[in-house]
Write a protein that binds this DNA or RNA. Structure first.
Lengths: 183, 183
DNA sequence: TCCAAAATGGAGTGTATACTCAAAAAGCCG
DNA sequence: CGGCTTTTTGAGTATACACTCCATTTTGGA
């Protein structure tokens, strides 16, 4: 545990390096040596702070998963547009985390605790989207709203995925069209 | 290259083993040892047939990417429903390949020739979907059809991705709803 | 049946990886 | 400063990996 300032600084540097490497080249690029080199730190220092490489990666992944959700405290007042805009901003402004968000989810099979975390988070997101839809249209049945939310979130994830493969793809435009069709 | 029957059988066994392992545990699980053990073959035999492990994996990935396209020869007569049904069948019937299809696309950063292949293939698929849309509605402008096709394919990929994480998800139902909204 | 080509077994190579450890250095507080 | 704790260093370990080599066996056509 970091209790001196030096330790806290080192932890930060390591997490930054890990995040950059994950964004640039995925899990394969985030080797211990690469992380330590970029953070300007030796292996021993790494293991003084993190019990394993995986723990550092998990922490970055956790941050990425949480960053996709805007203002969790006002979960029950936001509109569908708010949520979609937040997703667009997340993908375009925090593209590093967005990329990790998608990568971690797919390659999670090897380490299924990440996949489970991702899924739990997704379910909560679907509920939030569905609630926003029902607030806009009170006559919408509960099940219908959930189904629509699943479709919309699927579309957003799929389009983000498309954008990760080809940065010239206009993610925002397509995301808004998807929202218009499903909302 | 294999010219004796024995060699061809071995090649087949290796490709099957590779596909199974990729489907079960992703790229990480498809080690040379795992592939050879499952295929009942030694490393020397593997390298008598494939120049590298990557080549074997690439071949499986190529098959997966191609398998998502139904009847390429009648590319200009199919309806949107045909295409969506084919995708649904691909995901549910050939779940191994579907999973590889998605995995390869995301982790392609390490080996970007796969990612490029995936993207080229995606562009062709968008055109095919857009053409089907325009055949159904002649008044639909070209650009609009392409945009809608991108959104629909994004949704299908995103929903397939969702299904890979949680097999109890009703992919077919949500895929059809997405198609209805975008078509 | 014979033989060259093809396929196989399996030990062996080099390398990259995650991780450890004990000693040295630096940080904090009286 | 002085004494205690935390942090850093960097060489070192064990292991898993892709891949090689070649003697041996099998194959299939002449």
């Amino acid at each position: 545990m970091a209790r001196y300032q030096a330790g806290i600084r080192t932890e930060t540097k390591i997490l930054e390096a890990t995040r950059e490497l994950l964004a640039e080249g995925g899990l394969d690029a985030a080797t211990l040596k690469a992380i330590c080199d970029r953070a300007g730190v030796q292996a021993g220092s790494f293991y003084n702070i993190f019990p394993s490489k995986e723990q550092a990666i998990m922490q970055v992944a956790r941050d990425a998963i949480q960053a996709v959700d805007p203002n969790p405290e006002r979960s029950y007042t936001d509109t569908l547009d708010d949520l979609v805009d937040a997703y667009i901003r997340f993908v375009t402004d925090q593209s590093d985390l967005a990329r990790i968000y998608l990568q971690v989810a797919v390659s999670g099979s090897a380490d299924d605790s990440v996949a489970r975390r991702f899924l739990r988070h997704h379910v909560r997101r679907v509920e939030r989207f569905a609630a926003a839809m029902r607030r806009a249209d009170r006559s919408l049945p509960d099940g219908e709203a959930t189904t629509r939310a699943e479709v919309l979130l699927g579309a957003l994830d799929g389009l983000a995925f498309r954008w990760v493969l080809d940065r010239s793809f206009d993610f925002a435009k397509h995301a808004r069209i998807a929202a218009a069709h499903c909302g």
